[in-house]
Structures are given as C-alpha cells and as structure tokens.
Design a protein around this nucleic acid. Structure first.
Lengths: 354, 354
DNA sequence: ATGAAAGCGCTAACAC
DNA sequence: GTGTTAGCGCTTTCAT
C-alpha cells in the first residue's frame, strides 16, 4: 500500500501539507493514541500532566479529529437531519435558526432536506438516514419517511430518534413539539366575532395537512363559542402561499355578497389577499377585516399592518432540538410539548361598522 | 473484540435487526466484496451476470453503503458546506433551494452554516471544514474562513474547493458567481432620473459590504449618467433589514425638504420604509417614489407593489452549485459568472408630477 | 492512569 | 473480470 511519507510537515507555508492525525499528536505528547483519545473524550480519566501535554501537542499540530474515522468506530455522527417541506418559506427559516443554534451549542451539525414535494427526495433521505449518516432527525413535514400523508405506504425501518415539529404526526410514537393550533384559531375567530363580525370567511391550508385540520376545527369551535353558524360557503381553499391568498382575494372580490371578515390561516395568504382586495378598490379594514396566522416579519409592515397569531418560531426550533438531543443522549423527554401563541392586534381588523 | 453474531437477520419484523454490510451482499451474490463495491461504483467493469446477482442481493438485504467507512477510505464525503450570514432571510433561502436541487442531482448533500454574525461559529465551521467533513464549500458571506471582512486575520488553511456566491471575495482566487450590482444600481438610478426625479435618496447596505460598495458605485454612476449631482446628504445608512427601512423612513419623514424618490438597496428596506412613510400620511408614489432591490416574493404584493431589480436567485444557487461540482470532479469552471438582472416596474415608482 | 491491539465497513492496489 | 488484502484514523476493550 502507499505508505505515507512520515515526518513530512514543513511548517513553512510551502508545499506538501498533511493534516495531523492522532498518531502525530501522540508522538509529540509522548503518549499513546488511546490517551489522546481519552484526553479529548473523557479528560477526567487522564492525568493532568498527560492532558496538558496532549493539549499542547494538539495546539502545535492543529490536530482536528477525523469525523469519518470517529463515526465509523463509534457509530455516532453528531449530525441531525431536519426534514422540511419548503426551505424558501420564511416561516420555516426562522424555526431553522432556533434548531441550528441549539444543535450547535450541543456540538451537533445540521443537515437540511428540503422535500419540495418530491417523493424521490424523500426516498433518498430515508436511505440517507438508514445509512447512518445522522444520529437523529427533526420532521417538519407532518409524516414519517416513506409514508405518505394519508398513511399509505409502509414507513421505512428508521431506528434513530425522531422528533416531530409543528405538524404532529398522528400515530407516531415520537415527541411532538407544536402550538395549540386549535385553540389559537378558535381565539382569532372569537376575536373577530367579538368585534361584531358574523360573516367570517376562512381561507384554509391544504386539506390533508394536520395543521389545517386543527385550525379548521378551531375555527368552527370559535364560531360556535360566539353563537355563530358555520357556513361551508365561507370556506375558501388555500395552501399557505401568497398566490393562494391572491386567488382567494379574487374569489371574494367577485362575490355579490361578501363576508365582513376573513381569517387566513397564514400571513402569506393574508398579505396576498389584502393586496387583491385593495386593488379592487375595497378598503381594509373598513370594508373587510383580514386576519393572518404566524406573525412573520412582514406582518408588522404590511399595509395595513396585519392582525395575526404569533407563533414562537425560534422557541419551537429550540424546543425540538432540545428534545432530540435529550433522546440522543439517553435522557427522556415529554411526548408532547405545546408552546404558547399570542394574538397580535394590528390594523387589518376593525370592529364591524354599525 | 466483540465478534458480532453472524447470520442473524430475521426477516420477520421481530427483534434484532442488523443493517446489511457489504459482506452480507457479497456472500449472498457469491462474489467478493470488491465486486460488490465495483458493481456500485463502476458497473461497466463488472460482468452483467455478477452485476445482476449483486443488485438482487442488495435489493434482498436492503443494503445501504456505510458512508463513514466509504469516506474514511476514499477521502470523499459527498457533502458540501454552504456558509451564509442569515438563514432566516428570504433572499438567501430561495438561493439555497437552487443550490440544494443542483447538489442533490449530483449526489451531494448540503450542510448549512448560518453564521449569524458569530465568530465562534465561524471558527467552528472552519475546523469542520479542515477536518474533512465536506468536499467543498459555497460562501455567501463575502469573506473566507477566519478572515474578517477588512482582510485582517489570517485565513485558515482550507484546501478544499470553494466558490463565492453573491458577495464576491476580493483577492480570493476562487470562482465568483454574482450579478452585476453596479450596473443594476446604475440602471435603477437612471430609471428614477428618467422619470424626472432629480432629488434621489439612497438607502445603503452595511458600509463594509462588497455588494454595498458596488451598488453605491452604480448609484453614483447612474446620477452622473443622468447629469445629476451626487449629494452625500441624500445617503441614508441601512443594513438590508426591514427595521433599517423603517428607521430610514422615519428619518425621511422628519426632514423639512424631502427627496422625491428613494432607492433602497433591498426590498426589505423598501417595504419597511414605505410602511413608515405611508403611516406618516405621505402617499407612495404620489408624494415619494420608492424602489427596491432583489424582487423577493413580497415585492409584488406590497402596497403599493414594489418597483425593483430582480435577481435570479434560484439560478444563482444553481450556478454556484454547478461550478463547485465541476471543481470537485476535476473539471474547470470560469473564474467569474455574472447572471442578468431585470428592472421590474410596478406601482411604487411614478413620474415626478410637474 | 496508560498502552497494545483489534476492528468499525469500505475501497483500491495488486495479482491473477 | 475477479479475488485477496491492506489499510483509511479513530475508539475501545483488555491487560497491566
């Protein structure tokens, strides 16, 4: 085999440079490789003198452990997979930040998989996971690997710890971190009703979505609590995107009789809808009140500014990462964590004029 | 050592399950492990019969190669690091998507590092890179590892292929993928001037930013081309965020004499600024025209809709990923790739009333 | 507290 | 075209 030239480590910035290995450190510190390894992993089991020499040798050589070798031997990757349906959605990216910072502090790296609605990608990442490239995964997409949302298909044999974030996964026995979507939707509905609105439209998410089911349930509960009837004609289908909001707005504008308030289940849809409604010559909130969900950054600077439900996105990410790390390190974690939301009152919703 | 129990692979979904190794496949296909390896990496060098048997054995065992072992031996990770300053910025997340899809198609995974302005993180990821966890990196943050933006500090000894995206890295001998910021800014400035505006404010990015320097240069060139004088008093400092736009708006509103047009170097700032200006009772574009830069999704549904410069974000990401893959696979790639931008005319800019 | 040595699962020389 | 075999660099028994 190719026996690497030994002793070559010109400190001048010249030519050949070979990254330091554990062996180099061991030699320099005059200990065995085992001691170097221990000095790093379990410092308390190494004498202070040896430890000091090892540390010095590491500094001198610039030694960084080879993660592939470490992983191969220890069967741990210190990597976490985050599966999400759409990376370019601002809602997810803030959550991601919470995840990343928590993982980072615990020494874990993050691999992101943007599913983008592609089953091929899903299969790929399932294999990826099965191949042991990650120690655990955080799922933001509402279903397990290889299992479509309707529960068809058999889930791949994934044996690593998993955590579900935002979209609870029905039937899966893994920790779920989420907000109380039902309560939040009910609250917003009652807020609108409390301002005198009795004809409240609802712009939905995708029907198969767990969030949607929860929020829709909350909407109906809110109506009921306010003593208002539920009218299926006031439900407009959507999918959380700006475009869906625009489309919903067009539909509203075309109607002869219009609701006096619209509850959009995402801020993107609310902003898109406001835009369309405004362009058609209607005023918000004077002619029609519009409410959103999420409180993304643009909600506060929309025109008019958007009344919405604030989700603690960063905290959601942090909580999920913390739960997963607990699992990875053999600790236990609650099966379900629910974070509080907040009703943010701004200018897009007004009392019904008498 | 612990000799793993062999032959245990109950196909019933019962208890102990050991992931298949190359050895298992080899035994089942009645070939050597080398042939299995070759059947996967270089199928043309294996007889069709052997290949068929291997493939069948792989299907039967559900074998997935162990990436740590593969990496350790071949010194390739099939992973790419993407370094960016702020993950929760919609501008970057769209770019990320372009990167990810291109990497994915080429069989590479993506590890994201959100620097978040933290030098500690930067050091961490430099070590990460040095440790050989990734084959290459795409830098969106405008500087090399361990090197602050002013060029101080010595860059870490990173020897893997790198590509700079969006923010060119001065002095670095690596492929740069970007737009022509100067030309785009000049074009927008001339567009405003062409509509009769002679008092045009400029809301900047961070002064140290390469993009900012280019755009500022373009702004001045545009003024000159239009025969307008450059007035430093019309430059308002910003940092591309919504908040900076709000602050700039407040500053404008407080002024006795106001410019008739404002060129914001990001859409976020333009939207924040419009919001503030509108709240103060001014009209956009009647009293003041506002232009942005980037064409993020919200630009089209802002109220009024935003005149801006469109950056081909997905294509930028794709181009960077393609360039890096070329490098990784030993091909050459141009030192500089410039993608076209587009002036998007909407409602936030109007001719100066006579 | 420390060292010797096995081996994680794979790929790539090399020999045939 | 295929098999044999040596390691990639680390962690972890086991023995001292």
């Amino acid at each position: 085999m190719d026996e690497a030239g030994q002793g070559d480590r010109p400190d001048g910035d010249g030519a050949l440079f070979r990254a330091a290995r554990i062996q180099d450190v061991a030699r320099l510190a005059d200990v065995s490789t085992a001691t170097v390894s221990r000095a790093l992993a379990t410092p308390e089991r190494v004498s202070p003198e040896a430890r000091a020499r090892v540390l010095e040798a590491i500094a001198k050589t610039g030694y960084v452990p080879n993660p592939a070798a470490r992983t191969l031997r220890s069967q741990k990757t210190y990597m976490v997979l985050v599966v999400l349906p759409d990376l370019s959605n601002t809602f997810f990216s803030k959550i991601l930040r919470g995840i990343e910072e928590t993982l980072f502090e615990a020494g874990y790296g993050m691999i992101i998989s943007d599913l983008d609605g592609s089953p091929a990608k899903e299969a790929h990442f399932a294999a990826f996971t099965a191949a042991g490239r990650v120690d655990g995964a955080i799922l933001l997409n509402g279903h397990l690997f290889g299992q479509s949302r309707d529960g068809e298909g058999q889930p791949a044999r994934i044996t690593i710890p998993l955590v579900a974030l935002c979209e609870a996964i029905p039937g899966a026995d893994i920790p779920q971190i989420e907000i109380d979507n039902r309560a939040a939707a009910s609250r917003m509905t009652q807020h609108l009703a409390g301002l005198g609105h009795s004809s409240i439209a609802y712009v939905s998410g995708p029907a198969i979505n767990v969030l949607e089911r929860e929020r829709f349930q909350g909407f109906k509960e809110g109506l009921q609590a306010a003593g208002l009837p539920y009218d299926p004609a006031l439900v407009i289908p959507g999918d959380y995107t700006i475009e869906a909001g625009v489309a919903a707005g067009e539909r509203l504008v075309a109607q002869a009789t219009r609701p006096t308030a619209v509850f959009c289940t995402s801020d993107e849809m609310a902003i898109g809808l406001m835009r369309t409604v405004l362009s058609a010559g209607l005023r918000v909130p004077e002619d029609i009140s519009v409410a959103g969900f999420d409180d993304i950054d643009f909600a506060a600077v929309a025109e008019p500014s958007l009344t919405t439900i604030r989700q603690p996105r960063r905290e959601l990410g942090q909580a999920a990462a913390t739960a997963l790390i607990d699992l990875l390190q053999g600790r236990t974690t609650p099966k379900r964590i629910r974070l509080e939301t907040e009703l943010v009152v701004r200018d897009s919703v007004a009392p019904l004029p008498r």
